[in-house]
Amino acid sequence: MTEELTQEIRDDLYDLVLILHKPVFSFTECLTTYSKEDMIALANDLRYKVRRSKTKTVIAEDFFKELLFKSQHQLSFQPKENVHLLKELMNGPKKIDFLPFTRKNPELFDLLYFRWVFLFYYEDTYTLVLPNESKELLISFIDDPDFKEEHKRKSLLHGYAEAFMNLYGAFETDFFLKVWNQHNKQYPLELNGLLTELIGLAWFNERLRFTDSLEYIFDNSFLDENDVPIFLSSSSHHDYYQPTKADINYFAKHKFDERTAQYKKMSPFFAKKLNSQKLKDVMDLIMIYIKLDLGLQDLLGELNSQFGIVFDSAKDVEEFSYLYLNLNNYSRKLSNKGHTPKELTKHHNNTLSLLPNNVVPFTNKSTGKQEPIRVNKVGRNEPCPCDSGKKYKHCHGK
């Protein structure tokens, strides 16, 4: 990790969770590394009652009492990865390589935010610390069968909420309840019980939000509450795609479907131009544009500005166009209530245009100018434009 990157991380995280201090191991020592003003602000943010006029030590004691009172309930909403990490930290502090660790454990920030765990940066080393008092607290319930069962059920509910947001963006509460009860007969829920559970979960999930009527649930990172009725009415002529349990398990962890043959054909097109991390970023950007039905021209501009990608030959333009067309047609879209365009055409005989914008700009090497190339649709029995020698239907038209 470069020093420049470390400094950037420190600047971004210092006010949130990062403590520039030698690791300490009691809860009071950990919390009192903050100023008194910051301790009070943190308590207010978490709605913890502390005695503001007292010393930092007393405020830390009040803070831990609140944590003690709420911890079992709060931790029952945490994903299983966080519970496993807490169990690991019960054996002692853990030094981490910050960026790779947080990419693999994005839920870590919940543990840091609620101060179940503290993150120290000292002598170029990041260390996660579970305070001694918190260890004793966890020992009292983390392996209790009742807690394990409650956590299992809420983790499952969390996965369903994530999957539904990734598949639909916004959806009716009744539809969620119907699918949940179909899939999870061992954990049946009525509407009021479901809402109580999801409202509790929303405290830990910034994406998960409800309209005022509680009739709809939506992804706050994608939609504003006022936009939900308009968004849903635009696709009201579609039924929801009916997810399987396998869909839920996959989309609970993935925003896009990377399993399709079309995705796997698009990725190698860029692999020869980019390293593995940039390749993932490029594919994520493409999938965002497809999932949200954003313009192809804008996507090409973003590929150029963010990654320096230009299409400098007609062969590249045509190959990308047909790869993009196929990926578009077989990708699940929020505006289609989770359906792919291909599914809607097959099942509803819609006269949809499945083609994305067919004007693709590329850079002419001889002039250095951005020029448009119009891509004409290739017949299935015509030679594939990638020069493979195969008919289009046996190559990129599969």
Rank of each mutant, 00 (worst) to 15 (best):
K154F: 04
L156Q: 10
L157C: 08
H158F: 14
H158P: 05
G159T: 10
A161V: 12
A161D: 08
L167A: 00
L167E: 09
E172V: 04
E172F: 02
D174K: 15
V179Y: 08
Q182I: 15
Q182R: 13
H183L: 10
H183T: 06
N184K: 03
K185D: 07
Q186W: 06
Q186G: 01
Y187S: 02
P188D: 09
N192Q: 13
N192L: 12
G193L: 02
L194C: 07
L195V: 04
L195W: 03
I199D: 05
I199F: 08
L201P: 04
F204K: 08
F210Q: 12
T211H: 01
L214N: 11
E215H: 03
E215Y: 06
I217G: 15
F218V: 13
N220A: 14
S221H: 09
S221D: 10
S221E: 10
L223M: 02
L223H: 09
E225Y: 06
E225H: 06
E225S: 15
P229H: 06
S234W: 00
S234H: 08
S235Y: 01
S236W: 06
S236I: 15
H237K: 14
H238K: 08
D239R: 01
D239A: 01
D239V: 03
Y240T: 05
Q242A: 09
P243E: 09
K245E: 12
I248P: 02
F251Y: 14
H254K: 10
K255F: 03
F256Y: 15
T260P: 00
T260F: 01
A261C: 00
K264R: 02
M266T: 06
M266L: 13
K272R: 14
K273A: 14
K273R: 15
K273M: 14
N275D: 14
S276P: 03
Q277E: 07
